[in-house]
């Protein structure tokens, strides 16, 4: 945590809420300092030059001063075009923001989280499938936050995962051959585990089990409150049934 940052560093806006009459408190994900809470003074006033820049998912360059938990934003410039996300994908992007907010702490620089977030936004803005972008993001976020995901070897005798076998993924240990390990955990195919390990998700049929697995692994780190963006996702995807 520096007292004054002279250079502008790349960041994304994760969340923002009104503060006083014309200011905002902004939760940023910065490349060099991790998550930061900053006060953007006057950002909501009609004459502010920052209007329209402190939007979620817009890549920005930021400078700040101060020390402690809440800093003061001193510089803000756009860094490239804002990603434009159509409808349901917007809800997915909010979901990613919410995961970052729940899994990371302020002033804990983890560049891998930044790059995972930046990648998932680009993927969501592109034409590729939404499900694989989200599963990869969940995996990368877990790894980057230090909660390793055991995907290549079994938890007991460390033998490689075989594609044609089914496994039971134990929360705190890893995958065990199906049938050998009763108790809490998620059943998952070797094929799904290997695909996730190789980050090659091109078979959408694997999505339900991967979603279940990653959901299970994320759960202990999300806190007691349910994710707010889930409801939004359901609401925005209403027309899909």
């Amino acid at each position: 945590m520096t007292a004054a940052a002279t250079e502008l560093v790349p960041a994304y806006v994760l969340h923002r809420y009104p503060y006083r009459d014309t200011s905002l408190i902004v939760e940023l994900l910065s490349l060099s300092q991790g998550r930061l809470g900053v006060v953007a003074r006057g950002a909501r006033s009609p004459k502010s030059l920052w209007r329209g820049l402190l939007e979620p998912f817009q890549p920005v360059l930021v400078g700040w001063r101060g020390r402690g938990d809440l800093l003061t934003l001193t510089g803000l410039e756009p860094a490239g075009k804002a990603v434009s996300l159509p409808g349901v994908r917007l809800a997915s992007a909010f979901y990613c923001s919410e995961l970052v907010l729940r899994l990371t702490r302020r002033h804990d620089p983890v560049p891998a989280v930044f790059s995972a977030f930046s990648t998932v936004l680009d993927q969501l803005a592109g034409d590729g499938p939404e499900w694989s972008a989200l599963r990869l993001f969940e995996k990368r976020l877990l790894e980057a936050s230090g909660y390793g995901v055991q995907l290549e070897f079994t938890a007991d005798d460390v033998s490689p995962i075989r594609a044609e076998q089914d496994y039971r993924y134990l929360d705190d240990a890893g995958p065990m051959p199906s049938g050998t390990a009763p108790g809490p955990g998620v059943t998952i195919s070797g094929r799904a585990l290997r695909a996730l390990a190789a980050e090659q998700l091109d078979d959408e049929r694997l999505n339900p089990e991967l979603q279940r697995l990653l959901g299970q692994l994320l759960k202990p780190h999300l806190g007691d409150k349910p994710l707010e963006s889930r409801g939004m996702y359901k609401a925005l995807s209403r027309s899909r049934g």
Partner: peptide, 19 residues
């Protein structure tokens, strides 16, 4: 309003309208 949240709101209403 032309913010990300405003856009989400518009999308929701547009989907509802389509129905």
């Amino acid at each position: 309003s032309p913010t990300v949240e405003g856009e989400a709101t518009s999308h929701y209403v547009a989907e509802m309208g389509r129905e």
